[in-house]
Design a protein around this nucleic acid. Sequence first.
DNA 1: TTGTGTGCAAACGGTTTGCATCTCC
DNA 2: GGAGATGCAAACCGTTTGCACACAA
Lengths: 157, 157
Amino acid sequence: MESNNPEANFADQHNILRSRLNQKGLRLTDQRQKILDLFVMTPDGEHLSAEDIYYQATTKGEKISYSTIYRALHMMVNLGIMREVELAEGRKYYELSTSPAKQHHHLVCVHCGEVHEFEDHRVTKASQQETLGHGFLLRDCQFTVYGICQMCQLSVI
Amino acid sequence: MESNNPEANFADQHNILRSRLNQKGLRLTDQRQKILDLFVMTPDGEHLSAEDIYYQATTKGEKISYSTIYRALHMMVNLGIMREVELAEGRKYYELSTSPAKQHHHLVCVHCGEVHEFEDHRVTKASQQETLGHGFLLRDCQFTVYGICQMCQLSVI
DNA sequence: TTGTGTGCAAACGGTTTGCATCTCC
DNA sequence: GGAGATGCAAACCGTTTGCACACAA
């Protein structure tokens, strides 16, 4: 269980990232490592925005700028290491990408922002059929269900 | 076929809007009528951004400001008359809302922006099951499939 | 050594807001 | 008459960019 050994996990991720970067003549810097670490440490079902990353990093005394964060995120999305998801208004969130076969979706509480991840093969299938039917080449799909969670149903309305 | 009689269609829409507004002590102004008209005239499968509305309205010699457009759109979304959809980056699009039973989804070309609408009962079902399973109250769901259309596959890559 | 990456500060662009004025009911 | 709506200009805020400097390979 590598999940019992976070350091090995970090090292793995760094090596993967380093080799991918090197293939393209890019470099593995401290900042890029730190950003990746934050995602590796983030529990499943949570997502990080640029602000989250900035806040978590600076709280730990690490120095990083927003420009670096955004540039690193874009780069990793382009490399296929991360995925950009639309969960809430006016802000982008990021998560480590998983294999296309394990594509997952999000259930979001519009009131408190609570997010659940779920998989549904019917949705996956629908995206494949629809792209095929129109002669499209599938790139990504986002299925986001918005609702009000149980807690918020009590406090609001 | 009321689609053969656009004027009746406009009148219908205006009356619906007026009665909804009056229930809340709100008013039906010229600007709000014009905005709604643009959506009624827009063919199925097309969506309007605030900029689209501003451009189409001013091209016709009508005077309207962005603040009014945004305020009207928010109001109509809150009244359930319109739906806000995320199709492209950094911009919101709007469409007239349809009954929850006829919920539809979008297939978008990430290169040229071409959009196809489609319905899929499996997706609708999945959204219902997922909200139910977590005790959520379903509000809306967005299923957006991103790909590259046939034309763009030829010209890009 | 050199081209890539970083931080800073300023710019960007879609959206929102404060305020004076106007207008629908 | 009075609450609600509009237009203008400025503010907002997440994101991007130009540039001088720093650093990985």
